Amino acid sequence: MASELLVNAVEHGNLAFGYDETSTLLAEVRWNDAIASRLQQPDDRHRFIRVEVRGEAGRIIFLITYQSQAFDDEKYLNFDIPARSRYGDVPQRVG
């Protein structure tokens, strides 16, 4: 699950791929090429993510910060449709 958080920070945070665009790229087996191409763009190639990991009261907390405009998570907070993860069909909720 931690790797999915990191990929999402780069994909949706720094590179601004939307959910629909990502779904199409995955279905057409073009996601890797699209990510590699966007990472070469002058506006995107120097962006990075910052990860802080903390342990508190039996929990592990990940704080992930990316370098682009804020992600609007409101429409995904009640996202009840099972999402297709890169790692197979996994029911997910964002938020």
Rank of each mutant, 00 (worst) to 15 (best):
E21P: 06
D43Y: 08
S68P: 14
M1R: 06
Q92A: 10
P42C: 14
F17I: 03
I60D: 03
A36V: 07
F48S: 07
R50G: 10
I60F: 07
Q67F: 11
Q40A: 13
R38F: 08
T22W: 07
R50F: 07
A57S: 12
F62G: 09
S3E: 13
A70N: 06
A57F: 12
Y76V: 10
N32H: 08
P82W: 06
L15F: 00
E56W: 12
A9I: 04
A2P: 04
R54S: 14
G88W: 05
N8Q: 07
N78Q: 13
A34S: 04
V53D: 11
F48P: 00
D73S: 11
F17K: 03
I35W: 03
S37R: 06
V7M: 00
F48D: 06
A9D: 02
Q67N: 12
F17H: 03
L26F: 01
Y87N: 13
E11P: 00
N14F: 08
F17Y: 06
P91S: 01
G95R: 01
H12Q: 09
G58N: 10
V51A: 00
R47N: 11
E52R: 13
R30K: 11
G58R: 02
R38Y: 05
T65V: 13
R93P: 00
I35M: 10
L26D: 04
V90W: 12
D43S: 11
N78T: 15
H12R: 04
D73P: 01
E74S: 15
F79P: 03
E56N: 01
D44G: 01
N14I: 03
L15A: 02
R45H: 14
D20F: 00
A70Y: 00
A57T: 12
R54D: 13
R30E: 10
A34F: 05
F71A: 09
E74D: 14
E4C: 02
S85M: 04
T22K: 05
P42M: 08
S3H: 07
D44W: 00
D44K: 06
G18L: 01
Y87L: 14
F71G: 03
I81R: 06
A36L: 12
L25T: 00
D44L: 11
V7D: 01
D20S: 11
Q41Y: 03
L63P: 00
Y66W: 11
D44Y: 05
Y76L: 15
N8T: 02
D89W: 15
A83P: 07
R86Q: 08
I61Q: 13
L25F: 05
E4Y: 04
K75C: 06
R54T: 10
L25P: 08
A57N: 13
V53I: 15
A9S: 02
E52L: 10
R47S: 03
S37I: 03
I64W: 05
H46W: 10
V90T: 11
A27P: 05
Y19A: 00
D89I: 13
D33K: 12
Y19L: 07
H12L: 08
E28L: 12
F71D: 12
S85Y: 01
R93N: 09
Y87I: 12
I61M: 09
Q41L: 07
A34I: 04
R86N: 13
E21C: 07
L26K: 11
G13T: 05
A34H: 10
D89C: 08
R30Q: 11
R50Y: 04
I35G: 04
S85E: 07
D33I: 12
F71I: 15
